[in-house]
């Protein structure tokens, strides 16, 4: 029996499928100079758990996800830290780890049927009974008439159905890790709710380790077990999803206050300014120019992640021991 907390969360390294330690991605300009895109990222992805990477655009969440599967854009390289699979095996993208992206319409090829496209992603040993396996996959993602879907072209399916088809394709290679990069952002809210429920079901039923990339904290609160909030290339706060009730970091607090509420009206409390672009990130704590709590030390020295309570950590001088918040 593994130690679990009240929410059934597994503690420690148990159930870890993939561990990333100290990941750093560099962008190399023409003159060979290295700009840090993301740095010091620690992640543990666990079977049957959803880990969320949250943040605004330009914070490095999608780049972190791309780095895990070797999908970094040209000019960038994963050149710090290491990625370990718990079973010691080395895996390329597509087998151990698969992706689902924001816009299913752009990922599907318009001139081939869904059946043709799923067939291509099946492992060679399953191609003999391809039809059976494909129908099984489509049922897993909630299609009641798989035969009809297999014969359909992408434009004949709605956005939600296309995203289900993408999920079926992602599952074809029996991955251990599913990276869902803004999987519901392009969908209508009612469809989004259904796809989120499906993701949560799949994660449980297939014992998948899901890495959810999202900017919408509501989406994260719906299905994530653990949350890492990124700001300007670094993780600034981590913890179980409940941490969103009482975030410590001023950035995370600001994000939550900035959300419009169904029971509220009047002015919203935003965060002044915007995320600094690559190459213009300030010294010290990268959030300090926008932070209401910033002091001298924040301008001079970058804070590191420090434990603050059960399974939680935060990178902020103002928080915790010696802090003033």
């Amino acid at each position: 029996m593994k130690p679990t907390d009240l929410n059934g969360r597994v503690n420690g390294e148990a159930d870890a499928v993939l561990t990333a330690a100290g990941l750093g991605v560099g962008f190399f300009a023409e003159d060979g100079r290295r700009l840090e895109v993301v740095g010091d990222v620690d992640l543990v992805l666990r079977a049957g758990r959803t880990t969320a990477l949250v943040g605004e655009s330009g914070c490095g969440k999608s780049i972190t996800a791309a780095a895990l599967g070797g999908l970094l854009p040209r000019g960038m390289a994963l050149d710090r830290g290491e990625i370990r699979w718990a079973d010691g095996a080395a895996r390329g993208p597509g087998r151990g780890l698969t992706y689902v992206f924001q816009d299913p319409g752009e990922c599907l090829d318009p001139v081939f049927t869904i059946g043709n496209q799923i067939r291509e992603t099946l492992p060679p040993e399953e191609r003999g009974r391809a039809r059976e396996r494909m129908e099984e996959l489509l049922r897993t993602v909630g299609f009641e008439e798989p035969a009809r879907v297999l014969a359909s072209y992408p434009h004949q399916l709605s956005g939600g159905m296309q995203q289900r088809a993408m999920l079926a394709m992602a599952l074809a290679g029996r991955p251990r890790v599913l990276v869902a990069d803004e999987p519901t952002t392009a969908l209508d809210v009612t469809v989004q709710a259904k796809i989120l429920r499906l993701l949560a079901d799949l994660q449980r039923a297939e014992r998948l380790a899901v890495l959810l990339i999202a900017h919408n904290l509501g989406v994260v609160a719906e299905i994530a077990d653990e949350v890492h909030v990124m700001y300007a290339g670094r993780i600034v706060e981590s913890g179980p999803v409940d941490m969103l009730r009482q975030p410590r970091h001023p950035y995370v607090q600001g994000l939550l206050k900035a959300l419009p509420r169904l029971d509220g009206s009047g002015r919203l409390e935003g965060i002044e300014g915007s995320v600094p672009p690559l190459g213009r990130r300030p010294a010290g704590c990268r959030f300090h120019p926008r932070c209401p709590l910033a002091r001298e030390v924040c301008r001079e020295k970058a804070p590191e992640m420090r434990a603050c309570g059960e399974e939680r950590a935060v990178a902020c001088w103002a928080c915790g021991e010696g802090g003033w918040a």
Binding site: N7, V189, T190, Q192, L262
Partner: peptide, 24 residues
Amino acid sequence: KELLAAAPNVGRALDRRGSGPAVW
């Protein structure tokens, strides 16, 4: 009603998954 129920909401989601007040 369906639109309202489907809109992702931090407070409501956390309440459904466990209890405790949110400081914000």
